[in-house]
Design a protein around this nucleic acid. Structure first.
Lengths: 206, 206
DNA sequence: TACTTCAGTGTACATGTGTTCGCTGAAGTT
DNA sequence: AACTTCAGCGAACACATGTACACTGAAGTA
């Protein structure tokens, strides 16, 4: 049961996925990527595409899932392996920007489809971002001992700022990139301090 | 010199612009709007389009400019007419969300082309957002008496949060919309307080 | 009135698209 | 060895697109 058949199928499936990702760039979004272009790049006939995906939409959703997963794992490991010397905020931001730097097209996919034309895509990206928020809110609640809803609102803000500055990072020059990282860290600190002060005000006993 | 000619030309030019804006929706972005579709909606022959715009790109840039201008004027007037009873933050957020509610397609245009495929578009939107930031930073510097760079960093964060939550507002239901406004206000307060605390720390004499 | 300008038109063409259909041949099964 | 499955193929299709071109006729001009 080597499954030569299934193995080969898996291989071209991956080829299609890679082809799609490789074609993404600043000038080309998934939305205006055609089935035929993907097939060409993957080295298969246009019609063979249908053996693996019903649609370009189905392929897109697969990509979003995969990219979201990658990013989530990365951030999770960043939170785990941060040493107590450097702040968790700094580590997270640097990790995130590193990801953006090294996978610009992956990130662009999430960024663009977040406000894209297909409801399914928007929801899929929203789901990924939601994972982020929940995980971070959870972390804040237990580590910073914040009330649940303060943690949630703060987490939302942190994710929004980071994700968005990641978008700016894409088009930035070397100098601006450095400043962007610093500014992001500062902004996250503003939020963290503001939230902490707010929580204290509400419950001074803590 | 009634200029019947020029008058008529201006009229169809506006018809084209309106046609384009009317076709925008959650399911249709400017990027996948074709010249022919716009012409059809505007009630002119496809080729007549060229009498007014060199390109779809040129039309798009015009739209971005126009939309940005509208939004900017709105926010500026909001800042001016806020009565001292309600906080400037609350007024600004409510004004912004009202704009998003009433001009969803206009806002969608800015939102999407911000991370779009055309460099010219991205830069145009970035320019509009930059106006926002600068005006707000200026306001913060004079009103809250913050150091220039703290004001800038804070303004960036405020704009990012507001703009982004506006995007979520688009797809939100009635209940979520109300919560979104509240959360946005809270988040902006976090930032404002965090920034103020930071500034005080740096320069306790103030 | 004769002449020019030019917004708007209709035809035409080359190009790229998604998708249907029937075929092929190797892999898998009995 | 005989039979089935099924990933991949090429030809063909109907369709929409951007744009070139030559045209018309009303508005503007002298």
């Amino acid at each position: 049961m080597a499954g030569i058949r299934a193995q080969q199928k898996q291989k071209t499936r991956q080829a299609i996925i890679d082809a799609a990702l490789n074609q993404l760039s600043a000038e080309q979004s998934f939305a205006n990527l055609s089935l035929r272009e993907v097939a060409r790049e993957a080295g298969i006939a246009p019609t063979s595409f249908y053996r693996h995906f019903k649609d370009m939409e189905e392929l897109g959703l697969t990509l979003v899932d995969e990219c979201g997963l990658t990013l989530r794992q990365l951030m999770r490991s960043a939170r785990k392996r941060f040493d107590s010397q450097t702040s968790i905020i700094k580590v997270s931001v640097e990790t995130f920007m590193e990801f953006v730097e090294q996978n610009p097209n992956t990130f662009r996919l999430l960024l663009r489809e977040r406000s894209g034309t297909s409801r399914a895509f928007r929801e899929a990206v929203a789901r990924e971002v939601e994972f982020f928020r929940l995980e971070l809110a959870d972390y804040l609640e237990t580590e910073s001992k914040l009330p649940t809803d303060v943690a949630r609102i703060q987490a939302d803000a942190l994710v929004t700022i980071t994700f968005n500055n990641g978008a700016e990072y894409l088009d930035a020059g070397e100098h601006k990139k450095r400043r962007l990282i610093e500014d992001t860290i500062t902004q996250l600190r503003f939020i963290a301090n503001g939230a902490a002060a707010f929580a204290k005000e509400e419950d001074p006993t803590d």
